[in-house]
């Protein structure tokens, strides 16, 4: 049973406090990792407001909004899974994690479809026949591809994590109530959702009025 107290910790409370603090510090680094991109977006939005609005009108707002709904719901299902895991309800936790996985895969599928339609509209800044006029729109789209791309990588990593935890719960390889694996993975997933909460308004809702 791998989740008993590790050798160098006195007791379980100290170990889970260490795990939570370690994860929250990692989340701070993730905030700054995406933060550098938001800083670049902020500067260019201040410099070229018109170009960013014309560029943002081309984004697929329907898929973006669907993805927001999917991620918010998956955040809720993860919160429920954390509660049931702490109460030791193995079956409920597995169901809820399954729902989370489904929502996440839905997000990626919608994202893939959106990328496909973006590419057919030549909205790739590197391509010669980029349809939009002022060259600064290419900067918006460069930021769009980098931001949503890196976010998608984080979503995929999160889904991988959930899949591993789900199989471990299924094989009962760790005591559900005394381990904080589900809670730690949950914190990471909520951050991925938090980043999308900010990505959605600045990439999709700009220039709609």
């Amino acid at each position: 049973m791998s989740s008993t107290v590790a050798g160098h910790f006195h007791d379980h409370r100290q170990q889970s406090r260490a795990n939570t603090l370690g994860l929250w510090i990692f989340l701070a680094t993730e905030v700054l990792f995406f933060g550098a991109l938001f800083a670049a977006y902020l500067i260019y939005r201040v410099l070229y407001p018109q170009a960013f609005e014309t560029a943002a009108r081309e984004t697929e707002i329907a898929i973006g909004t669907l993805n927001t709904a999917l991620l918010l719901t998956s955040s809720a299902s993860v919160a429920m899974a954390v509660k049931t895991a702490r109460l030791g309800q193995r079956r409920a936790t597995m169901v809820l994690l399954g729902v989370t996985l489904a929502l996440g895969l839905g997000f990626l599928a919608a994202k893939g479809f959106e990328y496909h339609s973006d590419l057919t509209k030549h909205l790739w800044p590197g391509s010669a026949d980029f349809p939009l006029d002022p060259p600064q729109t290419r900067i918006f789209w460069a930021l769009y591809w980098i931001m949503t791309g890196i976010h998608a990588v984080h979503v995929t990593a999160g889904l991988g994590l959930w899949a591993v935890i789900l199989t471990m719960i299924a094989r009962r390889s760790f005591p559900l109530e005394s381990s904080d694996k589900v809670e730690i993975a949950g914190l990471y997933w909520h951050l991925v959702d938090l980043v999308w909460i900010f990505l959605w308004p600045i990439l999709y809702l700009v220039g709609r009025s």
């Binding site: 939570t20 603090l21 929250w24 955040s75």
Partner: peptide, 23 residues
């Protein structure tokens, strides 16, 4: 999301500090 789903409300001061430091 941070206060309710991530239980920041009941975490210790150190963890809240870590969360705020990034911002």
């Amino acid at each position: 999301v941070a206060l309710f789903f991530m239980h920041l409300k009941r975490e210790s001061a150190t963890i809240r500090l870590a969360a705020a430091a990034g911002l």
